[in-house]
Amino acid sequence: SIKDSVKLCNFNCSQSQGITVQAIDDSRVLLIALKIDAGSFQEFRCDKDLVLGLDLESLSKILKQGNNEEYLTLMAEDSPDNLMAVFEDKKKDRISEFSLKLMDIDSDVLTIDDMETDCTITLPAYEFAKIAKDMKTLSESLKIVVTKDSVKFNAEGQIGTGSVILKPHTDMDKPEESVKIELNSPVALTFGAKYLNDIVKATSLSSTVTIKLTDKSPALFEYKLPSGYLRYYLAPKFDD
């Protein structure tokens, strides 16, 4: 989900936190924060806190070697040079092993304070992905306007304009189909369509996405994982 936004990432491993990643794209506009709790894994053991510097394109090549039904075990020693990946099928009569070279990655870490939030929107992840993809064909910017009654996605481009308006509703049978708006104050923010299209690559990870918006501040897009999260912080566009 994130390899088109960032190439090199430090994966921080610890017994209490599981695996955490913070990475910023080269343009310094999009920040990715990933947390995979230890409980996400069938087995998780980390005797000593470790930082695994990974090239995501390389990691992706290794992970594609396995089949979906196979068990994956990732292993690194103390002060490792390599990450080991072992795929086993359920009957354990096919085992494939790979070793991925680790890298020293010099990344600066940003401190994200708890933000005041003007509004929080939760909507189906596929719905947000469709809007982001469709609107990018019209304009390089997407404006999100939230009032208590609706959230409006608006694009103005060379060929014309377009907007999608969603109204809050609750689907009792399929809660993940609901659209929720929690509003402290109305907000109108503009974002780069390119970055929104990077963010929606996480769509398959979660049925819903939660968007937190605050006037003249970065937006938070959160995809909840079964035990953890993938968060994107995106700086908005506005006049200085």
């Binding site: 310094r28 920040l31 870490v109 940003l110 780069g192 501040s217 700086a235 566009k237 506005f238 006049d239």
Partner: peptide
């Protein structure tokens, strides 16, 4: 046209 902001403007470096 509005100017793309960067995150450094909002978040501190550690």
């Amino acid at each position: 046209t509005q100017k793309q902001q960067t995150l450094a403007r909002f978040f501190g470096s550690q």
